[in-house]
Design a protein around this nucleic acid. Sequence first.
DNA 1: GATAGTGGGTCTGTCCGACAATCGGATATC
DNA 2: GATATCCGATTGTCGGACAGACCCACTATC
Lengths: 249, 249
Amino acid sequence: MGLTFEKLNVPAAYQVVSREIRRIIVSGELKPGDHLPSEAELAEQFGVNRSTVREGIRQLENDGFVRREGRKRLYVSVPTSSDLAPRASRALIMHQVTFKELWEVARVLEPACAALCATNRSAAQGDAIQENIVHTRHMLANAMWSTELDTQFHSLIAEGARNSALLLSREPVGLLLYPAFEMLHPLLPQALGRMLAAHDKIATAIAAGDAGEAELWMRKHIVDFRRGWEMANLSLDVPVTLPGAISED
Amino acid sequence: MGLTFEKLNVPAAYQVVSREIRRIIVSGELKPGDHLPSEAELAEQFGVNRSTVREGIRQLENDGFVRREGRKRLYVSVPTSSDLAPRASRALIMHQVTFKELWEVARVLEPACAALCATNRSAAQGDAIQENIVHTRHMLANAMWSTELDTQFHSLIAEGARNSALLLSREPVGLLLYPAFEMLHPLLPQALGRMLAAHDKIATAIAAGDAGEAELWMRKHIVDFRRGWEMANLSLDVPVTLPGAISED
DNA sequence: GATAGTGGGTCTGTCCGACAATCGGATATC
DNA sequence: GATATCCGATTGTCGGACAGACCCACTATC
């Protein structure tokens, strides 16, 4: 009798509810914007208690597949990078991700974003980039600086690439890497000026639709970031810390 | 009276519970492996009902910050890419991500993985890659093929790069892109052979620790994938479909 | 003495019922 | 027609309940 049985994994009811609703959403049976039945109705249809349904819904809500505004009915929604990226960033923090690791990813993704942005951006997206530059220049002229502007510059370029996979891939990295600039620029006074100059070159190339030039300058910009980091005697292998923008949620 | 008030967003209690526990975990107050108090105890400490605590916990469970095996106590855990990637992949599906978009990301990330893998891989990781090649060769010799082997090959290389940010960035893309090969190889008989040849070159370069060569062949491999796609008259702009491996969970 | 049962305590998963706050829409009022 | 009011529907939260797992210490059996 060599007959053996695997340890069978009986999923909890709330997980089944969650998966089933998600399946219907991802498969397209329910389209974004569609309303889901009320909790009581779902409970009746699934033949479980409303509490069980509610626990299942929490998971979907967290993923961004369903949303509710206020205490109203649920509706189907497409998860955005702002739903997913902060969670990924937090996961990376727990993995004790280092500056070097983040930089290695940025070094290949950001130039790709810049190149695609130069060819694919909309007019409005181009304007937003220019506006970011103007803001940045204005801040620097007053000897001020906020890391959000830097993070935003790179996010805008990624959006301009019009590639949702690229956007989703780079966002968790961007949320952690660029705020680290906060540690760098007080130690390296010239860093802010160099940053603005690079942003300007990139934005100009994008405005001109010159993909090669945009890619090139973005690469220089990222490489320069690392060089600055090393010049400031900051360690490449120290785990990055959690920026406030993420911890809040 | 220009005084106006913003519409204030009162978070539900279960969300506060969720965020608070997550904060404690991400900040490091609770370390991976630590047990959380029981639901009843959490409810008492937070001063809310156990149902409310349970709803909050569901969200964390889904993110991979806490886990439970069977019906036992919760313990703190580090979210892995297998927690996060399938959700990101599903999100991309809902965004109707195209082959082209995925390919554009893979084109820059996969060569970077290969280059880093050549220098950073452990001995065991190198062996696993070799084993994958052997399996693949064996399958092809028997005129069989399973898309999982291809997906695995690229995942192994990404793991060998020892860069958690890189791993996390590419996984959602890999989960969608390589299964698409399933559509290609019946239309293009020579595709399987070319794939094996490329995998072999890459694995050899990695085994030799030659980062440049590994990167180069990986790039060729990815470019070849796209060329094959076009030769088979498959559209670059058609949204990719959901592979079974993800829909199951 | 080792092994197999036994029993209690704890915790999770699920259910039931309840109620206040809120929302949407219908209705009444001016 | 605009405004105020009421009513049903729905969510968020609560309290309590109970079966099934699980853990562990204890005991009975060989």
